[in-house]
Amino acid sequence: MQRYAWNNDTLKGRVLSPVSTVHYTARDGTPIEAVLTLPRLRAPKNLPLIVLPHGGPFARDSEGWDWWVQYLAELGYAVIQPNYRGSSGYGIDFAKKGEGQWGLKMQDDLDDAIPFLAKQGIADPKRVCMIGASYGGYAAMRAAQRNGDLYRCAVSYAGVSDLAAMQRYDGQFLFGKTRGDWLKKQAPDYRAVSPRFGAAAFTIPILLVHGREDKRVPVKQSRMMADALKAAGKPYDYIEQPLADHHFTRGEDRLEFLKAMAAFLAKHNPA
């Protein structure tokens, strides 16, 4: 066997935290596949937990290199990445299960990872935070609004807070109407599942981070959420990255985000 290159020239052949695929059943009987990463330096028992949903939401997580996840595991957290209903790669029927379920049953799928890992003794159900970007950022906002009893904190990068405003933004671009029709199927009642309008119901602190150069989800989405939380007197931190885009193209932005996330977690859900 001949090696042609390293995936990461800094890490090279360093031993990373182990990654595996697990399966659990959501409360309505829907089977959920998830990627579980356990910190290499700690015993897999009663660990603080990060629930980290992918973006999309028509996408999926799989075993492989993930810089967010490996960083969190290095800090001492177990990380679960559920491929909730509506994720890609599991057939049309599974994808359609997500229709009309943004912030509802899709959120239940994420929450149900907690008792699954707690029952196995892997995770401490009293030390859980949700972290995500894009749709995952939306889910983190929604967790802070809807299920604060399950989480200590939440972190949203480039999350969507107002679905109606998101549809108006998408409508400016090619195939905007098609995108809007699709979004309406995912969340028939925009206001009911838009975290911006439920700021008064937030019960845990949240860190909002957004890039000013984000063309996929405009920075206004996090600004509106921050303004709503401020008006409601709720705890939040807001960081706006002036040169960052939606995909963390710049290493400087990735590093700033990781440091801010680590500090926020150390304060609200220490490992």
Score class of each variant (00 low, 15 high):
D162I: 06
A164T: 01
A164V: 00
A165T: 09
R168P: 00
R168N: 12
D170N: 13
Q172C: 08
F173G: 07
F173K: 08
F173R: 13
F175H: 11
F175V: 02
F175C: 04
G176D: 08
G176I: 03
T178H: 10
G180H: 04
W182E: 01
L183H: 07
L183C: 01
L183A: 05
K184S: 04
K185I: 00
A187F: 10
A187I: 10
P188Q: 07
D189W: 10
A192D: 12
V193Y: 11
S194T: 01
P195D: 03
P195V: 05
G198S: 07
A201R: 09
A201G: 01
F202K: 00
P205A: 06
P205G: 09
I206F: 09
H210L: 04
E213S: 12
E213I: 03
E213Q: 15
K215F: 15
R216Y: 05
R216H: 09
P218A: 11
P218C: 10
S222G: 13
S222I: 02
R223Q: 15
M225E: 06
M225R: 02
A226G: 13
D227L: 12
D227P: 00
K230Q: 14
A231V: 13
A232L: 12
A232Y: 13
G233D: 08
I239H: 14
E240S: 12
D245H: 12
H247K: 07
F248A: 04
T249Y: 14
R250T: 04
R250C: 03
R254V: 05
L255C: 05
E256H: 12
F257G: 03
F257P: 01
L258G: 05
L258C: 07
A260S: 13
M261A: 14
A262P: 04
A262L: 01
A262H: 14
L265E: 02
L265A: 03
L265Q: 07
K267M: 08
H268N: 15
H268A: 03
N269E: 06
P270H: 11
P270N: 12
P270A: 09
P270G: 08
P270Y: 11
A271P: 15
